[in-house]
Write a protein that binds this DNA or RNA. Structure first.
Lengths: 187, 187
DNA sequence: GAAAACACTTTACATATGATAAGAAATTAC
DNA sequence: GTAATTTCTTATCATATGTAAAGTGTTTTC
């Protein structure tokens, strides 16, 4: 739990009682590589914090596996469109290395908001940061070509290359593995 | 202001004092068609509510005007990546018809959060809904072709066609006006 | 440690998209 | 209401990307 509370501190400070309340509705989860942490069709009722490992969110478009996002150490992994609507997600969370998560029960968490305004504020700020990230992702998809985004990716997150198969990176960039191979091949 | 508070009610109920506090930091703004409500390089310190009219958020990629989003009546218009980071935005907000906005001063608004937890909760929920929308937009860009998205657009928002020039719709879909014309032409 | 499975690259070909330009249609301005 | 401007469509051509298939390399499994 230490890593989790350290992560929280970047957004908002919590009272001891608030930390305790969160700890009570959270548990550690270990997942084997290549297995699904959450499956397609499942309604998201858990906010995951990735302590160790790599995960991706993916879905199928006409039998083609498409990666929506990657997650690395010390970040939140959630399918927001399911968490905030209560509807089943068309996406799954898969683990690409043996990974450790802290799983926070979200209905329980939301109940804590009334008694602990500092928790509500914390998650408001976390999700505001997610909104900024997601808006920037829309921008990067519209603004830049797959090639430009590949170069940004290897520059800003070179570890991705080492930890994630290229076929997933390709679908994340919106291109085929063949196209990615061409981009990598030139020069 | 009536329309604004009616919009708020969809997310959270406010006390009379809270409504009054928001009214005090808000003002009505009228903008002539085709002019910019906020320019590129401006740091977003206003949350706009669009009462009447149409707006779009756009930016330039190598001198090409690209539309990031459209906004219609009874919705919030904000460049989140600037509002939440305090950094200047690379995007502008342009008005496509003579439009009426309610402009909420965001630094003042955020100050109200401590005294009015119902205001903090209101905007938490509004921005959570924005997060869901934005995640769905990422999905739609990756998931669907421009042609599929055009058909969804005319089905779900047929008024867009009547109120927005096709060239803006094309860039919103990530294609050229020529390509959009081909899609529209077939059949 | 050999066999099997998986991941990546390369090639050839077909197709869709973009760029450019020209013309038609619609809108705006006087 | 006519001219000017803007918007949209159509056509032609060049290019980039996808599909399919084959081959190479790497990792996994027993």
């Amino acid at each position: 739990m230490v890593a989790l509370f350290k992560f929280f501190k970047k957004f908002n400070t919590l009272s001891k009682e608030a930390e305790k309340a969160i700890a009570e509705i959270s548990k550690e989860v270990t997942v084997k590589r290549n297995s699904d942490l959450q499956t397609i069709g499942h309604t998201c009722k858990t906010i995951y914090f990735l302590k160790k490992g790599v995960a991706r969110i993916y879905y199928f478009k006409e039998d083609i596996d498409i990666t929506e996002s990657f997650s690395f150490e010390n970040s939140i992994v959630v399918r927001f469109e399911s968490l905030f609507t209560g509807r089943p997600s068309k996406k799954a969370i898969q683990v690409l290395e043996d990974s450790d998560f802290i799983a926070i029960n979200s209905p329980e968490l939301f109940k804590l908001y009334d008694k602990h305004p500092d928790i509500e504020r914390l998650f408001r700020k976390i999700f505001e940061a997610s909104l900024v990230e997601t808006v920037n992702r829309v921008e990067s998809i519209q603004f830049h070509t797959a090639e430009e985004r590949y170069k940004v990716l290897i520059k800003e997150a070179p570890n991705v290359l080492k930890r994630v198969p290229l076929k997933y990176i390709a679908s994340y960039l919106g291109i085929t593995p063949v196209s990615l191979s061409r981009i990598r091949g030139q020069k």
